[in-house]
């Protein structure tokens, strides 16, 4: 039996931060496809954790497992455990709605609702029972400020969200996520559909957000991972090849495959 520190997949660095997510021997299948293999990862509070790896290696699957969105695919089955704040979330008795209230998600393609900007933000609070107009107004302003898009939209809150640019839509989606004040924000390639300028704004935003939120971000962009993350996990064929401080991963990786991937030799 190995202890956590000896397990080469599990990074237990010198950080003082608390562990929010802890996965133990996590396996996932889509029908017969074995998409995640023995994942053991500890993810820390108020850090940015980047997930990198070639296409199809299971990055999206992994973060969708963290809020159990992966279960929307009916053929999915899992084994192993995921602990979130010391609760085992893969238990069938665990309410996914509670989990997803505490763990927000931002998707690859901006996906605002076909409603007004205001209604997009208040959607989360309203479904969770917050009705007071005063409170909602305040949440709207605070979330939009939090996603640094307030100044751009404050005069058009009643307009349809589809009138915004792609980059603005994505920040609106982040704001929508902030409106219910989650602890963790999962981001699946949030900038891959955006132009460089919008990408930069989101990256800056992520740096701001990490003061209050734990962020797990999937990215294909090596520079992005290097720029904004504290830890990086490298996935390959459903396995975690290496998980370490971002600096270490990008300067002195311990696995050849990591080095190959980062230097662009495959992927």
């Amino acid at each position: 039996m190995t202890t956590l520190t000896e397990d080469k997949h599990a990074y237990s660095g010198s950080t003082n931060n608390r562990v929010v997510y802890d996965t133990k021997d996590l396996n996932l299948w889509y029908g017969q496809t074995h998409a995640l293999k023995d994942i053991n990862l500890s993810i820390y509070e108020k850090e940015v954790t980047a997930i990198i790896g070639p296409s199809g290696c299971g990055k999206s699957t992994f973060i969708k497992t963290l809020n159990r969105m992966v279960e929307l695919v009916p053929t999915v089955s899992t084994s192993g455990t995921i602990t979130y704040n010391d609760k085992s979330i893969l238990d069938k008795t665990f309410k996914v709605e509670d989990l997803r209230t505490q763990v927000g998600m931002v998707f690859q393609k901006p996906n605002p609702f076909p409603k007004s900007i205001y209604d997009n933000i208040t959607y989360g609070p309203k479904i969770h029972g917050i009705r007071s107009k005063k409170v909602l107004d305040e949440i709207v302003e605070r979330s939009l400020r939090g996603a640094s898009i307030w100044d751009e939209v404050k005069d058009r809150l009643k307009e349809n969200a589809y009138g915004l640019s792609g980059g603005q839509q994505q920040r609106l989606c982040i704001a929508r996520c902030l409106a219910i004040e989650p602890e963790v924000i999962l981001m699946d390639e949030p900038t891959s559909a955006l132009d460089p300028k919008s990408t930069l704004r989101i990256e800056e935003l992520v740096q701001e957000l990490k003061k209050e939120y734990s962020i797990i971000i999937v990215t294909h962009n090596m520079q992005q991972a290097a720029r904004i993350s504290d830890k990086t996990a490298f996935f390959l064929n459903g396995e975690v090849v290496e998980y370490d401080k971002t600096d270490t991963i990008f300067t002195t990786p311990s696995d050849n495959r990591t080095e190959d991937y980062i230097s662009g030799r495959f992927g």
Binding site: R100, T101, Q102, F107, Y123
Partner: peptide
């Protein structure tokens, strides 16, 4: 599907998603 995903992602239940997102659309 990405609209209902966004809704589920906020912790909405199935019926909430149906009623507030899918049916209006």
């Amino acid at each position: 599907g990405h609209l209902s995903e966004a809704s589920y992602g906020m912790g909405a239940t199935k019926w909430q998603t149906v009623k507030k997102i899918i049916l209006p659309a």
